[in-house]
Design a protein around this nucleic acid. Sequence first.
DNA 1: TACTGTGAAACGGTTCACAGCC
DNA 2: GGCTGTGAACCGTTTCACAGTA
Lengths: 205, 205
Amino acid sequence: MKKISPNTINRVLLYLRVLEDLIKDKRYLVSSGDISRFTGVSDVQIRKDISSFGKVGTPRIGYRTIELKKVLKDFILQCDVVRIVLFGVGNLGKAILKYPGFNKDRIKVVAAFDRLGSRINKKINSVIVYPVERAPEVIKRLRADIGIIAVPKKSAQGVADIMVLSGLRGIVNFSPCPINVPKSVMVKDIDLTIEFLSLCCSIKA
Amino acid sequence: MKKISPNTINRVLLYLRVLEDLIKDKRYLVSSGDISRFTGVSDVQIRKDISSFGKVGTPRIGYRTIELKKVLKDFILQCDVVRIVLFGVGNLGKAILKYPGFNKDRIKVVAAFDRLGSRINKKINSVIVYPVERAPEVIKRLRADIGIIAVPKKSAQGVADIMVLSGLRGIVNFSPCPINVPKSVMVKDIDLTIEFLSLCCSIKA
DNA sequence: TACTGTGAAACGGTTCACAGCC
DNA sequence: GGCTGTGAACCGTTTCACAGTA
């Protein structure tokens, strides 16, 4: 069992998505070239990624979709469902609660938290909004894995602290500032401003 | 003039943000160690990044914030304001239109587009929603640089085609499928589902 | 022929170690 | 001492070239 890099994980998740679509369309064979066309990843890269999990394809034929899906899933995703909690039910938070792409991938927002009294105890898309104080208790009870920070900048670190205390092991941080957490907690920053500015710079080049 | 990688661009944008805060606080000197603490980037990396733009710091003292800001800005961001257009005014689109972080960084959403009659000709946060058909004309008139795809998966490629035709050179794609565009157009995919699943996998490791 | 699998080479980015400077 | 700047070493990832196979 070797360590597999975040980059590879992302790519494999793309392959899995393609495989699921193919299987739904009753296609049972696929080549690395096909997957390349669907994902934009080069075919060599795809073969390298897959071969690191064992020999699963057959030369001249390709990969059997169902088998490949099973192999990739076993290595990548032992968890059946991802339970996430949301901090901050503003515009962005609400959009996440209503995001339609999660269901089919077994991602489930199990609770939301906010400080504003007017938002608390409401249900949004059948997710209950709790006061922040109840976070540790609720998170432990619902056994959430990952938390989303969708609060204003100045509250971000405080929320992150609560998340760590509550036992979350992964954080997606939408706030435009880096947060400080123990190394054991994985953080993924998604900073919209930086993304736009960065893209803008790349264009000029 | 050397090429500078997207990674570096992202880091430099972080430095710039820190510098602006420091200058606002009337701090005129800063060391790479300081910036490291604020951004999480290692101090050596920071010095490497900065030194690729010339010798701007002074040993024993550090960098002068105002000067450094100017140097970085000149290399990174010649554009004064980024004009973006939004395709798809659903939950996510609305959240983007209301995102508060853009103003201070001179990112401006100049127009939005949708197919739904009920959304068209409304103003959201003082941005007008046009019918998709008018996109090429409006985009050219407003001289937008970058477009956002916030439409359902099945419409994503069609919207991307319109964007390319309209002359946009950068696309931020929130839809969960890769889009096909000429190499001259820069694409940044932000796939929420993949992000969550990926984080989940990293946790298990 | 058309595909997978893989060792080797090439590349790019990060870290290290230290020179230079005040 | 404390800081910047930089060539060299290091590491991981991607690409190349090709062996192997039905």
